[in-house]
Design a protein around this nucleic acid. Sequence first.
DNA 1: CGGGATCCAGGACGATACTG
DNA 2: CAGTATCGTCCTGGATCCCG
Lengths: 110, 110
Amino acid sequence: MAATGVEAAFRMLEGRWKMVIIFHLFDRAVLRFSELERAIPGVSQKMLIQQLRDLERDGIVERVVYPQVPPKVEYRLTPWGQAMCPALDALLEWAAHRPPPKAGPAPCAD
Amino acid sequence: MAATGVEAAFRMLEGRWKMVIIFHLFDRAVLRFSELERAIPGVSQKMLIQQLRDLERDGIVERVVYPQVPPKVEYRLTPWGQAMCPALDALLEWAAHRPPPKAGPAPCAD
DNA sequence: CGGGATCCAGGACGATACTG
DNA sequence: CAGTATCGTCCTGGATCCCG
């Protein structure tokens, strides 16, 4: 199995806010910086920008700048970014099947 | 979309060595501590133990201790841990479809 | 409005030595 | 062999201030 490929993919998605950003972009498709900032309470501008840059550099999100007097920047998922939906879905499915962490004491194993 | 579920799943798999460990356990099924240590060059015992504990606490790997004079501990994936194979596969598939980061200058967009 | 720069705290990671 | 304890380093994430 190609561990390296999955590892690389994981490294891209690691980061405190990347998933949140991605899910917001799955939901709304196109969002401005300030909209993301408002949609994600608790994130600092620095982190938002940083994670956004990472995602952009990795080809997951796309950044569109409108050269206007009040600056306007839009963020959206690239086609490849959208393509990770089934992978996220599979992961979600897996997470949903998590068995309870066996709280009760084993009745037969002393 | 349930961002929280995927986020939680991701947090479990974050960590410099967890993926490596998991893939080794996918490959060999059962491994002793020293075998993992040898199979993963560059990892310190501390990190190996730490990541192993995390994976164990999250119900992904199982730890079997043999009460012998030379201590013997085996690690293997739990059924749930093995169940994440399709998710990893989907992620790998997604990673494989990554388009090249557009190196050439756009010929039509000046 | 969007984003860069700087400073700072905390946790992840790593090397080493020691124990049962 | 398997694991713990301690220490140090680096990187991540956060607050604040500054710029076009």
